[in-house]
Nucleic acid binder design. Structure first.
Length: 646
RNA sequence: GCCGAUGUAGCUCAAAGGUAGAGCAACUGACUUGUAAUCAGUAGGUUGCGAGUUCGAUUCUCGCCAUCGGCUCCA
């Protein structure tokens, strides 16, 4: 009957009666900022009784775990407010997310942003009332009966999926919710929150299910942290690539072709420079560039499987010689029309098949920058990062099974080279593994997943597993980079494919003279150039490295007197291969400098009479406050010294 | 596609059931300029598109289109 337990708190070891609460154990250290605790590494409420010997650590509101608790508790507070204001609304789930939380409701009518201030007000009232948050454990069956009585059918459904015999609910005032916890001790701890947006969301993320009404919010330990976060969001809005693209004159969108950018001359410069950069790498890494047709008979997509799996995302067109001229997307549709290619892979198999291949041809690396069209659903379009037409730095590698690991490793080296050259210091790598629907045996999948993992390890790359997210035809490596709002976008991808070689009956002759099936590796390093440019603009705020800047040098004349000198310099720089322009407008220098700053021109070359007389220039760098007087030769040397990716 | 919101001059934003206004940009002129906005003038809009209600709609209603935030999907 040991009624005592040994508790370790920091350096101190104490013996207390079994059942003593965490709060009492931490007594004395319990500031207002301590909102939960870790007991042997597990997050628990301060009110949790200690029944075993354990190590207890306080969790402060400002720690990342503490913040999580606060946000989760705030989600509960919001649900309580919503149910108080809108009786009959059912609750579903309300997790924390990267920068806050959300809660999905089944309301009688969907919420709108106008509802948010009212809900926030109610939340403040409930927080002010400082309701005690209590944890109650009960048998799952009891809980099911309880939520059934309350008419909370979503909670009942959740409970039916929980294997545990006992579950916990949290009660605050007259409101309760099924929850694992932990939570803050009372609602008064929640003082810095804001509801940010409403959205529709499907129950369990499945569009066949009911559409719920989701409210997003965020919460912090104190008001200052909340303000800071909101200010950060505002700053991120300034970096939105759609705004930068308009301001810098890079591209535009028009409803006449939703999701398809018009590249303006300056945007085209960036696009072409990225393509040229990849082409240089292709020579070094052994890729061969091709162009294949843009439009194919549907027969191609029928063989490749796109007709079955991707047709809804394809732009289809009737056979122009068909008098009826109708797109038949029905089961026989592949026999009559054409489709605009959404991917390059099927076309590349024709290049592979054009000759009788042997092991000596492998690996065969075929690259293509052609434009790909995908009929993305209207609701998903998003600037350059989600478009209906794109160019990928796409390549397909046809290789033997035993070459997979080397090829993947080589492409990963390339990925690292490119991302570091373009200033993305920390791309995230994920290994997407076998999905539920898949071709091939588990053993094959295990082997190919292991090959990808091993190639990652060879490159000393840290990666996470993205379980079940592989393509149905093979596992893949996905590479993500964040935009200004820290939303992660998949850019690069390396995918193993055993399916297409099968479907197109690709073969090669082995050294032993037998026939074997090659494997295809689909890979893109920048991914879609559109998305990459979008992310790059947000990453840099539009301040591109010198080699990528659409306009590299702007020569600013001080007055008409130096106009000809400015023109002469511009011509000289242009002849040397720099993208240089002269601003000889009848304006004050301050005005011209401001415009060059806004256009994000890396080199501003100011020439007044002093400089003209001495054949010098005054160089001002973008985002620089000082200018430097130097000779023309020195200016050229400075421009030439700007780093270029190899 | 689904949920919510938005759509006024090239851009950023006002106003209003009785035919719309500012700043910047554009154009014209003056100023000849020293490192993030010189001054003045001119022009620019069937208020996203189409119906309906009304004596009258750009404002109210409905449909469509596009955009934004999400869901789903994905490079």
């Amino acid at each position: 009957m040991s009624a005592e337990v040994r508790i370790t708190v920091g350096e101190e070891v104490r013996t207390v009666a079994s059942g003593t609460s965490v709060r009492d154990v931490l007594d004395g250290k319990l500031g207002r900022d301590i909102i939960a605790a870790r007991v042997d590494g597990k997050l628990v409420d301060l009110s949790r009784p200690l029944e075993r010997s354990a190590t207890v650590e306080p969790v402060s509101a400002s720690s990342s775990e503490g913040l999580d608790v606060i946000r989760h508790s705030t989600a509960h507070l919001m649900a309580q407010a919503v149910q108080a204001l809108y009786p009959g609304t059912q609750v579903t789930i309300g997790p924390t997310i990267e920068d806050g939380f959300f809660y999905d409701f089944a309301p009688s009518r969907p919420f709108t942003v106008e509802d948010l201030p009212k809900i926030e007000q109610k939340m403040r009232e409930l927080a002010k009332a400082d309701l005690k948050v209590e944890r109650v454990e009960l048998a799952r069956d009891e809980a099911i009966a309880l939520f059934e009585r309350m008419g909370e059918k979503y909670k009942v459904e959740i409970l039916q999926g929980i294997p545990d015999e006992r579950v916990s609910i949290y009660r605050q005032g007259d409101w309760l919710d099924l929850c694992r916890g932990p939570h803050v001790p009372s609602t008064g701890y929640l003082c810095a929150f804001k509801l940010t947006s409403v959205a529709g969301a499907y129950w369990r993320g499945d569009e066949r299910n009911a559409m719920l009404s989701r409210i997003y919010g965020t919460a912090f330990a104190d008001k200052e942290a909340l303000q800071e976060h909101l200010a950060m969001l505002e700053l991120a809005r300034q970096r939105d690539h759609r705004k930068i693209g308009r301001e810098m004159g890079l591209f535009l969108f028009d409803p006449i072709s939703p999701g398809q950018p018009f590249y303006l001359p300056k945007g085209m410069i960036i696009f072409n420079l990225l393509v040229e950069y990849m082409r240089r790498l292709y020579r070094r890494y052994g890729f061969n560039e091709v162009i294949t047709p843009q439009i194919f008979k549907n027969e191609l997509f029928h063989v490749s499987g796109h007709w079955e799996n991707f047709r809804d995302n394809m732009f289809l067109t009737p056979d122009p010689e068909d008098r009826e001229a109708r797109v038949d997307t029905g089961p026989e549709g592949w026999r009559v029309g054409y489709g605009v290619k959404p991917m390059n892979c099927p076309g590349h198999t024709f290049i592979y098949r054009a000759e009788k291949r042997s092991y000596r041809d492998l690996p065969l690396r075929i690259a293509e920058f052609s434009r790909l069209h995908r009929a993305e659903r209207s609701g998903v379009l998003h600037g350059l990062t989600r478009v209906r037409v794109m160019s990928q730095d796409d390549a397909h590698i046809f290789c033997a099974e035993e070459q997979i690991e080397d090829e993947v490793a080589m492409n990963l080296t390339m990925v690292r080279e490119v991302y570091s050259a373009l200033g993305f210091t920390e791309p995230e790598f994920k290994l997407a593994t076998r999905p539920e629907q898949h071709l091939g045996t588990e053993a094959q999948w295990r082997t190919s997943e292991e090959k990808l993992a091993s190639a990652l390890r060879r490159n000393l790359i840290q990666f996470e597993i993205n379980p079940g997210e592989g393509a149905f035809y093979g596992p893949k490596i996905e590479i993500y980079v964040p935009d200004a709002l820290k939303r992660k976008w998949q850019v690069a991808t390396i995918q193993l494919d055993y399916n297409l070689p099968e479907r197109f009956d690709l073969k090669y002759t082995t050294s032993a003279g037998s026939e074997a099936r090659p494997v295809m590796i689909h890979r893109a390093i920048l991914g879609s150039l559109e998305r990459f440019i979008g992310v790059l603009l947000e990453h840099t705020g539009g301040v591109l490295p010198f080699w990528l800047a659409p306009e590299q040098v702007r020569v600013l004349s001080l007055s008409e007197k130096t106009e000809s000198y400015a023109r002469e310099l511009t011509e000289l720089l242009s002849k040397l291969g720099f993208r240089a322009h002269a601003d000889v407008r009848n304006e004050k220098l301050g005005f011209k400098v401001r415009e060059a700053e806004l256009a994000k021109v890396p080199f501003m070359v100011v020439v007044g009479e002093r400089e003209a007389a001495a054949r010098q220039v005054s160089l001002r760098l973008l985002r620089g406050s000082k200018s430097e007087v130097m000779s023309v030769e020195e200016l050229v040397a400075r421009a030439q010294a700007e780093p270029l990716p190899s």
